[in-house]
Amino acid sequence: MVSQETLTAILEMRTLFKQGDDKRDAGLDPNPQGVIRYDNLAYGPDPKWHLLDLYLPQNASGKVPLIINIHGGGWCYGTKETYQFYGLNLAQHGFAFLNPNYRLAPAVSFPGQLDDVNRYIHWTSEHAAEYNLDTNNVFLVGDSAGGQMAEQYITLLTNPEFRKLFGYELPQLKFRATALNSAAVFVTDPGMITGAVTGYFTAEVLATKAELLATEKYITKDFLPVYLSTANEDFIHDQTIKFAGFLEAKGVEYVCKSFGDKKHPEPHVFLMNQRDELAKQCNEEEVAFFKAHLVN
């Protein structure tokens, strides 16, 4: 049972985040040149939340490498529409971009959203041929809450013991690298699960599913090569820096960048702002990181 206090916090978060996102994206073109978009493809039974959009570079020849997105929003906010401009930009760089919805807290608690991620990743495996997607070159991106889920999904892909805890099967996709942007890694650290977030990671979840949240315990040297981004005014900046050190100790390939300074401050998940020059730089660096890990 989610408390009234948590419900109020969720509603306040949704209102505040949507105001900021709408202001950020006002006037951007949802149909830019060079991109073909397929909207509202169903990947599961829920008619609202089990939908995804797919953006393809128009002039691509041969099979198209794919970026799969897991959006952020504190596990209780966000839609594919919020992420369309970010995804369209990456499609203009030569990648297909999968942009899904998933169910939000408090309608679903952990690990319900990861179940949706697993569902749409398997949908991708099953439908890749229809859209000429390159199943041998797949990349995963996640920001904030989506970064936490991307971290978890990569861990269960690369560690059978962790995957067994969730009961998932491996998709027929070859993931080559990932980008975790302002990611909520080490999610059980003090101060991470508070306010609206408790609508997803409920007291019951924390009491009964602690092992499923112990992601870092199961990360091995086989974790994917990862580009980590954060910013000088990212409220969870230190989680990214801590994770970089953790990956270093594990022997995992990574790049870690923090953007912004006192004269040009950057906030949490700044790279979604398509008008921001540092966001443009970050996105181009991540694209270059992915292209460096393409396999012929």
Rank of each mutant, 00 (worst) to 15 (best):
D134K: 02
V252E: 06
L165P: 02
V252N: 08
V138F: 01
Q172S: 14
P65D: 04
C76E: 04
P45G: 12
G142E: 06
L90T: 02
F85L: 10
Y55V: 00
F95P: 00
D25H: 14
V269P: 05
I68E: 01
I70V: 13
R103Q: 13
D276Y: 10
Q152A: 15
N181D: 13
Q58C: 08
T82V: 06
N283F: 05
I219G: 06
Q84E: 07
D276P: 02
Y120I: 00
L7V: 04
A96M: 06
Y131K: 02
Y153E: 04
A183V: 03
D25S: 14
D22H: 12
G147W: 01
G191I: 04
E285L: 06
T124D: 00
A26S: 13
A249N: 13
D21S: 11
A231K: 08
N40S: 15
Q19K: 14
G146I: 00
S258N: 13
I241L: 15
R163E: 04
H237T: 03
E204G: 03
G72T: 03
E216Y: 08
F243N: 04
P32M: 11
A292M: 09
F270G: 01
I67A: 09
N273K: 08
F95R: 02
A26V: 04
I67R: 07
K242N: 13
P32D: 09
G27H: 07
Q148M: 12
N31D: 14
N232C: 14
T124H: 01
E211L: 12
G20N: 07
L213A: 13
T135A: 07
D222S: 15
A196E: 01
H264C: 07
P265E: 12
Q152I: 09
T155G: 03
F186Q: 09
A42Q: 15
N273V: 03
K164Q: 15
A105W: 00
A60Y: 08
R103P: 02
E216V: 05
S258I: 09
F235L: 15
M13G: 04
K209S: 10
I154E: 10
E233Q: 15
A9M: 02
D25W: 05
T240M: 13
A214D: 15
D238K: 12
V141I: 15
H122V: 06
A292E: 10
M149E: 10
H264Y: 14
T8C: 08
P65E: 01
P190L: 09
T158E: 12
V255G: 07
T135D: 00
Y83T: 00
V205Y: 14
A177W: 05
L41A: 08
E126L: 14
G260H: 06
T135W: 00
F201T: 02
T202V: 03
E151Q: 13
V187I: 13
P65A: 05
I68V: 13
P57V: 01
I236A: 11
N101G: 10
V226W: 01
K263M: 09
D143C: 04
P225I: 01
V35F: 06
P267A: 15
E204T: 08
L206P: 02
F17T: 01
L88Q: 10
F246G: 07
R37I: 03
Y83A: 02
A42D: 12
P111L: 11
I36H: 14
